[in-house]
Design a protein around this nucleic acid. Structure first.
Lengths: 224, 224
DNA sequence: CGGGCGAACCTTGTATACGTGGTGGGGAAG
DNA sequence: CTTCCCCACCACGTATACAAGGTTCGCCCG
């Protein structure tokens, strides 16, 4: 892996994990020293993250981690519903048997992680969920769907949505995944799209509830 | 304007205008010499264009101008219809009087350019059209709509759609713009969304007709 | 004592130099 | 004559050096 790609991966992970809080300054020299590379690949990573919306860059004034307000999260979920729904509909007529099998494996793994002894493993579930959605995007065999969505899903608050799910919501999410696979297997675009819509809307509802209840509990967002 | 931004603007213009044909190699050193800057800002411009989908980059193997097949253009127009429709719906409840006035001015200017003596000025119309759509995106006051669409509209074939319009199609397009402004002024999201859908679908139909009729007449696209 | 101005420092933007992987051409062997 | 391998060249990736704009702290003036 190139230095630039490594820097990109490290920075993105640092941002979505909350290590770099929203609004935090990202100094090129500092990051370069921390990553053991020069400023050049760090700059490239920062510009890439800027293109994806994770950082904001002002000329001659450096880069900061982006922040998101409640209204912007609303926009994000509406656009996600549109684009992910489109992707799911496309996938319904293009998915292969091998991909369906993989999706079912992922469902299995997620349900296992959800029923783990001593509470659900939210980190693992989140990773598997990302993988499942990525698999649907691949099945859509579209050059654009996945790219458009990176700006919409790689957001700290969104990535950690699963940590907010209550048991009932978690079960509902698993149900959505299973139903989505069923719709894809049946080759029914409208069904797949509707399920994906519901899936995204459910996630949105959870986030809205949490943000409304404890607006001060999420220091990584809300403030600009 | 910084060198990097200048390089980006020049390269993008060169690509969408067809000066850099689809599939053409983009050598950093050559471009740097042509633009009178060093490789550093050229690299930054290339990566940015890559993020927007206009160029494809393979590690250690350089950058090439992207190409688009008929199926990919179909995807693009479907996604454009979704996202631009969403933007129009948002704009309907957020547009200001000043913005409405500006939109009407743009309509006026476009109709003037379309009725110019000695045939319509397609280049001017195209520019005004871009400006009008950008104005709608601004009116939507969304952080994401405009960004998502750059990957979908800044494409050589799409930008030059107006050159393909026949008089009747041109008139229809003007009508769409007027109706869109009317829907925005009425504050009716569904109406605005529907008009924008029709608008994008009409453009798609024109492109499909032309590509189907003379697939060899557009050397900038189709082949990979 | 407070506000505005200036200079030093710090960070970003750009240029240039160096290392490395990929590509193509030429030579030798079959 | 053809094919395969090796070497040289060339472009990309990264590091480093230099230039220029921004920020901040301190000083001077009101």
């Amino acid at each position: 892996m190139s230095s630039a790609e490594a820097a990109y991966a490290a920075l993105r992970e640092g941002i979505v994990s909350g290590q770099h809080a929203g609004g935090a300054r990202l100094e090129e020299e500092t990051l370069a020293a921390a990553l053991g590379v020069s400023r050049t690949p760090v700059r490239e990573a920062l510009r890439r993250l800027h293109a994806e919306g994770l950082v904001q860059v002002e000329p001659r004034r450096g880069a900061r981690v982006s922040t998101w307000g409640a209204e912007e999260l609303d926009e994000i979920f509406e656009l996600r519903a549109l684009v992910e729904g489109y992707g799911a509909a496309r996938a319904a007529t293009r998915v292969t048997e091998a991909q369906l099998a993989q999706l079912e494996d992922l469902c299995e793994a997620m349900e296992e992680a959800a029923c783990a002894p001593g509470g659900a493993d939210h980190a693992l579930i989140g990773r598997l969920n990302n993988e499942l959605h990525a698999a649907v995007h691949r099945a859509a065999s579209s050059r654009y769907v996945a790219g458009l969505l990176t700006s919409l899903v790689q957001i700290p608050l969104v990535v950690r949505t699963f940590q907010r799910y209550q048991p009932e919501e978690l079960a509902r999410s698993m149900g959505h995944h299973r139903e989505l696979v069923a719709a894809l297997r049946a080759g029914r675009p409208e069904w797949a799209e509707a399920v994906m819509h519901a899936h995204v809307e459910a996630a949105r509802a959870t986030l809205r509830r949490d943000l409304g209840a404890e607006p001060a509990g999420e220091p990584a967002a809300m403030e600009r």
